[in-house]
Amino acid sequence: MNRRWFWGRILSSIGVLAAVLVLNFILFRIMPGDAVGTIIDPNFSPEAKDRLRELYGLDKPLLEQFFIYIRQMLTFSFGLSFLSRKPVWDELLSRLPGTLFLMASSMAFSAVIGIWLGIKAALNRGRLAERIVLRAGAITASFPGFFVQLVLIMLLARTFPLFPLRGSVSIPQPTGAVSVTLDYLWHMALPVISLTLMGFGGWALYVRNLMVKALGEDFVLMARARGLSEGRVIYGHAFRTILPPIITILLMSVPGLVSGAVITESVFSLHGVGTFLLEAVSGHDYPSAGASFYMLALITVISNLLADIAYGIADPRVRVGGRDQ
């Protein structure tokens, strides 16, 4: 891979991360109100208040606080939660896999289904199949995700109890690795299905437009003239050229994916970073809120970087060429 391009991407990710860190710091320190205002009882003596401020490092000058904060963030030592008085990092660590699983599986399903439908629509231009895909894409984009999820819960968990109403695990939890896994998958099924339902339409529309354009190109005509099978023409040639823009859209969808995961977790009461953030925000638990926001931003930045690298691999101009993308 082009080395200069690669390092450029890494630098840009670090830049975004630095901006997130600064934003996070500003939000919680310079905002109106004292960061420890909620845990300091107004009836405390001034000495006790000072001691608490000292404990949370709020007596030091702002710049020093900033450096301490950066070190904490980079080493994942987020301190103790105001609510549970347990280390925030432990709590986050237990919730991270759920969020990542939700995001990754829903993205994979919606991308695969969307790309497949998009290609089908492009191959069936003007027919009913294309119109259905286009209409479905336009409709799913204007439905608020949580409303669809609430309706799905009502239908598939309440009226026809195929899926659990809420939670990540059954209570009491089943024993044995296989049944635990199956139980988890059963609880995650409806969230993933609903996110896929909301997500595939945009993909289908986008891929259909790219594919229609690619199928009109000369090289497709050439490939057909060479007598290649239709499958090779479509997947080996036309699809191959639209791979880089598909990765770009993947990259642009990650922030929305994180937001979607946060709201989905609250709808289904899943054990994840999103519900932790919501609990922390509602309970004025600043260390937890800051840390979970940082984690979500970190997930975004890392997935962006991964998608960028995939882009570099997929696009020969970047892979071989010396031009800075």
Binding site: F28, V254, V258, S292
Partner: peptide, 23 residues
């Protein structure tokens, strides 16, 4: 434009939640 890039590449809902909680 850098600020635009950053704001477009971080998830907005979590940060809006934090702001709503603080403000």
């Amino acid at each position: 434009m850098r600020a635009v890039d950053v704001l477009l590449s971080i998830p907005t809902l979590p940060i809006m939640m934090v702001l709503a909680g603080l403000w």
